[in-house]
């Protein structure tokens, strides 16, 4: 079985984010980046299939030079090889542009399963997975919380709302966009990290996959980003821990709960 895992590198969870000078995105200088959390779960799900038998796991990402580090991490966790696509014209790419690039990459090989994260922790769009499936003309399921591969198909559980799960059977090839918590993500072992250095990491330009800037021109553009206007918000208490605790207890009493 051949598996493609699509990864995105996003600002680190604990990075202090500030709005950049042109007001349309965050300042990326001087912050740390990491693999999008949802994508870690997607990669882990693929690696479990590899552990269970014959599977080749290929990771692909789009981004500037800094993403190489995330690809090495993925190789260190156990992926077999990596594909890195970049072109300056992708700097403002929208989800459909990204999906077109990933589709061009995927079409060069025949993957049985494509794994993505449900969404990314930066833009939270949750669009690339279903778009990529459409462009590859394969079925997809989003918010996947369980997979069970058997006889050329996969039984999938999708998370709906309020604790309801939808169970369905999907033929391969297919695309699965996974929800966080589907598995327990492994860390790259020291041995894995050493081996990763020797694993293939292909760098591709758009022209290498038959695309150009015009083919991936964005339809979605960001006018501006800003800190959400403060509503009434919380009455923020100050003072020592004991002083704050006393005020809180006063309120809890007033609510009739003490």
């Amino acid at each position: 079985m051949k598996i493609l895992v699509c990864l995105k590198q996003v600002p680190h969870k604990d990075a202090r984010l500030e709005i950049g000078s042109d007001g349309t995105w965050i300042k990326e200088d001087g912050i740390k980046f990491e693999i999008n959390d949802y994508d870690n779960y997607a990669l882990e799900e693929a690696l479990r299939l590899k552990d269970a038998g014959e599977a080749e796991v290929v990771v692909a990402t789009i981004g500037p030079d800094r993403v190489t580090q995330s690809l090495r991490t993925a190789l260190g966790m156990g992926a077999d090889r990596a594909i890195h696509v970049w072109d300056d014209s992708l700097a403002n790419a929208d989800s459909l542009g990204i999906a077109k690039v990933l589709a061009a990459v995927a079409k060069e090989e025949n993957f049985d399963v494509v794994f993505c994260g449900l969404m990314s922790d930066d833009s939270n769009y949750a669009m690339v997975g279903p778009m990529l499936a459409q462009l590859l003309d394969i079925p997809h399921v989003t918010a996947v919380v369980k997979t069970d591969f058997e006889n050329g198909a996969v039984k999938v559980e999708k998370e709906l709302e309020g604790g309801t799960l939808e169970v369905s059977q999907v033929p391969l090839p297919c695309l699965l966009a996974v929800q966080t918590g589907i598995n327990e993500v492994r860390y790259a072992s020291l041995k894995g990290i050493m081996q990763a250095k020797k694993k293939p990491l292909d760098k591709k330009a758009l022209s290498d996959i038959g695309l150009d800037g015009a083919a991936v021109a964005p339809k979605l553009s960001i006018e501006k980003i800003y800190t959400p206007p403060k509503g009434e918000g919380a009455n923020l208490l100050s003072g020592s821990a004991d002083e704050i605790a006393t005020q809180m207890v006063g309120k809890i009493k007033e609510l009739g709960l003490l």
């Binding site: 918000g233 821990a241 003490l258």
Partner: peptide, 28 residues
């Protein structure tokens, strides 16, 4: 963003405030 929906809040180290609050509740 939690402070946007909260009625009352404290932007402090939880490891100091939560034990103090537990104690104050017990005392009350």
């Amino acid at each position: 963003p939690i402070f946007e929906v909260a009625d009352m809040g404290a932007a402090v180290d939880l490891f100091e405030l939560v034990p103090a609050l537990a104690k104050a509740v017990a005392a009350a």
